[in-house]
């Protein structure tokens, strides 16, 4: 179970006081952690698993394990990041596995244009117009589907970095990979999504 041993001690953590209180005997305050993070974890689960039932199972499993191992939390990483790591483990254990991904691996070469001269010279409208005009419920749904088609090891990086807002270093810590690896996977995942969004907008009525 994660203990956050790779980070430097003394990380500033807005949850530290609450966790110390829980570990000191105010167990009833665990409810506050649940209320604070249930929405985040549920959406993390949805993005990772794709199915609401799987996400719900994952959230329950994650909080159960968080409670079980909270006393072992050493404040060497932010509690939020530790919780993501617990959630990631729960995700992998969820019985109903996420659907098989379309791509098993992603290579940079797959996305580099074969003939750059044939590429458009004008920025397409979906990348040029104000974001509010481009971001619709349909686009969000399409994006979520495309994210689920990413290989799992790329999807976790993209979700943590671009959707949950973790830094490269925090993502590396949660996933126990190097920051260089985070950057490589993130870039390929973004290129994959860009290619899917391009298709989506080109075929939009």
């Amino acid at each position: 179970m994660p203990t956050g041993t790779r980070a430097k001690p003394g990380v500033k953590d807005e949850d530290a006081e609450l966790i110390r209180a829980i570990n000191a005997g105010e167990g009833h305050r665990f409810q506050q952690l649940v209320e604070k993070y249930q929405q985040k974890l549920f959406n993390f689960g949805l993005r990772m698993c794709g199915e609401a039932r799987d996400a719900e199972d994952m959230v329950q499993e994650a909080f159960l394990n968080a409670f079980r191992y909270l006393e072992g939390f050493r404040f060497e990483t932010r509690f939020r990041n530790w919780l993501y790591r617990v959630a990631m483990s729960a995700c992998l254990k969820t019985k109903r596995k996420a659907r098989a991904t379309r791509a098993e691996t992603l290579s940079l070469e797959d996305f580099f244009p074969e003939d750059p001269a044939a590429m458009p010279e004008d920025v397409p409208s979906w990348a040029r117009l104000p974001l509010e005009r481009v971001l619709s419920a349909e686009t969000s749904r399409y994006l979520q589907e495309a994210i689920l088609d990413l290989p799992a090891d790329h999807r976790s990086v993209l979700v943590l970095r671009d959707m949950e807002g973790l830094s490269t270093a925090e993502t590396a810590q949660v996933l126990e990979i190097t920051p260089a690896n985070v950057k490589v996977r993130l870039h390929r995942a973004r290129l994959f999504l860009r290619s899917r969004l391009k298709e989506h907008f080109e075929h939009a009525p």
Partner: peptide
Amino acid sequence: VCAETLRRTVELCRRA
């Protein structure tokens, strides 16, 4: 074009 479309991809993810 490459940079702007990738930048927009990231924005769309962040604002989902």
